[in-house]
Amino acid sequence: MKEKVIVYLEYYDPNDFLKLANGNVELIFIALTPIACYQLDNYNQPYKIPDDFCSISEIGIPKNTPPSMFEMYHLEEVRTKLYWLSLLDHVEWEYGAVNSLYYGGKLKLKELV
């Protein structure tokens, strides 16, 4: 049985995966940026995007309103990062409001693997 490896991509260069692309490993690509989508399309490489697992609107934002612009931007960045990385184990919601859909996303990913 082939080993399945999930690869999160901001930028795709097939040379990066020459060593892995042998008969024993199946690569599952998840594109995190438009340019990664474009490059994977160009190489006819099948891929998924994070929305295939859960959407940013499903993740939602915490109810405690951030008090300053700094924190607001920070929150947006956290939200976006969480969105991109919502399928990784090490991500923690910094405002303590982990949404159950975050786990839902991971479950869907498990089905894929």
């Binding site: 940026t33 989508c37 995007i49 994070p50 929305d51 931007y73 960045e77 969105y83």
Partner: peptide
């Protein structure tokens, strides 16, 4: 950062 939706879906 103005909300909306993911860049990959938008693309």
């Amino acid at each position: 950062f103005i909300g909306q939706y993911s860049d990959t879906m938008k693309y």
